[in-house]
Amino acid sequence: MAQIAFLGTGLLGGAFAEAAATRGDSVKAWNRTPDKAQALARFGVQPAATPADAVRGAARVHLVLKDDAVVEEVIAAARAALSPDAVIVDHTTTLPALTVQRAQRLAGEGIKYLHCPVFMGPPAARKALGSMLACGPRALFESVQGELAKMTGKIEYLGERTDLAAVHKLFGNAMIVGVSAVMADILTIAQASNVPGEDAVRLLGLLDLNAMVAGRGANMAKGNFTPTFELSMARKDVRLMLEACGDRPLAALPGIAARMDQLIAAGHGARDPAVLAIDAVQRP
């Protein structure tokens, strides 16, 4: 039975700790708000008063925290009590550049560190579903791979470059936030047009979004803007969307319209709307 620690027991961290205890691990947990750690006692999780108390004797220390600053603060608080062979597994969504600095510094101090952000919510964490990304020294990853696999439906090792999991997590979260923003605007068009939002969502089932990412997305990444639909026509359609919404607040479409206007003014109106990515994919 492994002894592990969870530092940060909000919605996701608490679900991870609960699942680990249910699987039979010996789990200690700390949270800045003590009640959140204490609420896990009914699952067999032992609440700890400090990060150091939580990590003492743990083979793995899982961080599920807010941001880079909190990660640094909590590691510093736990540092003195870490076992020499303990592995820190950081699930926090962090800035890639700071993740590299942290990984390099900790390696220099002899501390074992992997960055393993996840795409899952609390229900998925309790059922070991969703996806986990991982990067860091291969041998270190392989030493804990079996235990990490118990936490998730899929684990993707991205290699030894220590910022890759952080970067890929931002890719995924950008898609989630972007889809949410565009969905909000679609629902606004529906509201303004006296159409039930459920009908708007149902219409989207006719679109193969995965194929759009695989096809149009791949063309964008290659810088291929050969038109199947012209940017100037797409801008006209966005104008219609904006006019349909009137003065209702919108999350994404006004910014898209402004960027389209810039590109059309620069002479790209006859190219595919994929040209929205031109500044991101131009080759030196």
Rank of each mutant, 00 (worst) to 15 (best):
P34C: 07
V182C: 12
I88D: 08
L164Q: 09
A251E: 07
A69Y: 04
A29K: 10
A97T: 05
A190F: 04
R42A: 13
G8R: 03
L253R: 02
F225S: 00
T93Q: 09
L12R: 01
A270C: 00
T152R: 08
R283N: 11
V87H: 04
R271E: 15
V27F: 04
R23I: 04
E243R: 09
T33N: 06
N219W: 09
P254M: 11
V27L: 02
A41R: 10
L240K: 08
P227E: 01
D208M: 09
P196F: 07
G57C: 12
V201A: 14
S131D: 05
R259D: 11
A184L: 09
A214Y: 04
C116E: 03
G255K: 14
R138Y: 00
L114T: 06
F16S: 00
L250R: 08
R79K: 14
A139T: 14
T188A: 14
V87G: 06
V238S: 10
P273R: 10
H91T: 06
R271M: 13
R60C: 05
R56E: 12
Q38P: 00
K169E: 00
A29M: 11
A218N: 09
E243C: 08
R105D: 07
A192K: 12
L40D: 13
R23C: 02
T33H: 00
V55S: 04
E142Y: 07
L82S: 05
G110M: 05
I4T: 11
A265Y: 06
A280L: 15
R271P: 00
R126C: 11
A86Y: 02
L158T: 04
A48F: 07
A139Q: 15
F141S: 11
I264R: 04
Q3E: 11
A124T: 02
E109R: 06
G136E: 02
A184D: 13
L207H: 05
G8T: 02
K112C: 02
V213C: 13
P137T: 07
K236M: 14
L158G: 06
E72W: 03
V89H: 12
L95D: 10
N31D: 10
K236F: 14
Q101N: 10
G178Q: 13
A21K: 07
H168S: 15
G24L: 08
A149F: 06
R32M: 03
L114C: 11
V100F: 00
F16M: 06
F43S: 14
P227M: 03
I264C: 04
A266K: 13
A69W: 02
A124I: 03
A78G: 10
R239S: 11
G130M: 05
T92S: 15
R161C: 08
G44R: 01
V71I: 12
G205K: 12
I4D: 05
D261H: 10
G44W: 05
A274P: 08
A59F: 04
K112E: 01
G146P: 01
D199C: 06
L164W: 02
V167W: 01
A124K: 11
A52G: 12
